[in-house]
Computed example of a mutant assay.
Amino acid sequence: MSIKKRFDFKYLVIAGILSLGGQVPAQAADLGIVPPSGAVLGGCSDIVLSCENGRQYPICPIAVSLAGDIVTATLHTGPNRPAYVRLVPMGVGYRYAGRNIWLDGLRENAILNFGKYSSVACTVTTP
């Protein structure tokens, strides 16, 4: 096969994949945290983790799926310290994972892990 034919075929495959993108329903994020109706993307006061250590950690959505679940967000663990987290598909419940931090949960109950040896139980609230 000549270089010209391979080049054209590659772009044909990419164009075919892109044309299918709008027709495939979102299914991977169906069990994640759902922002309240009317929530603005990037609004940090809409979803808060109220934890047993007495602290509250706001979650700021960046991207939301068609089903309304948060796909990517920043989790604010301290002043000027946002951690970028992304939804990881799970069989039951949800997991948002970032660098040295992850949040495992089912509905409003969650456990916030700060690395291997430190975790705290939390409740997902929408004030």
Score class of each variant (00 low, 15 high):
L66A: 15
A121C: 12
S45E: 09
A28H: 12
P25D: 05
L41H: 09
V124H: 05
P79A: 06
G38H: 04
L87H: 14
L106E: 12
S37T: 04
L18D: 02
Y117D: 14
N53G: 07
S119P: 10
P35R: 01
L12Y: 07
V92H: 00
G42F: 06
V34Y: 11
Y57S: 02
G32S: 03
G98D: 04
I33W: 03
I101G: 02
G98H: 01
A39S: 12
A83D: 07
H76C: 06
A63K: 15
V92Q: 07
N100W: 00
V40Y: 09
L41A: 11
R95I: 07
A73Y: 04
Y96L: 02
I111Q: 10
G98K: 03
Y94A: 03
L20I: 06
N109I: 09
P58N: 03
G21Q: 10
T125G: 07
C122V: 14
D69E: 14
N109K: 14
Q23Y: 13
V48I: 14
V48K: 10
S50I: 11
D69P: 08
L106S: 11
R81D: 08
A121G: 12
P89K: 09
Q27I: 13
V40T: 12
G22A: 15
A28L: 12
S37A: 10
V88A: 10
K116S: 12
A73W: 05
R99S: 11
L106K: 13
G43E: 15
A121D: 13
K4R: 15
L87A: 07
E108D: 14
V92K: 05
V64K: 11
A97N: 04
L87E: 10
A67H: 11
F9M: 09
I59R: 02
L75Q: 03
G93H: 00
T125D: 12
Y84D: 10
R95L: 12
I14T: 02
I111H: 05
R55L: 14
D69R: 15
P127L: 03
N100F: 01
I14D: 03
A63Q: 14
V88R: 12
W102S: 07
V124Q: 05
C44I: 08
V120I: 13
N53C: 08
N109P: 07
N113G: 01
T123N: 14
N113W: 07
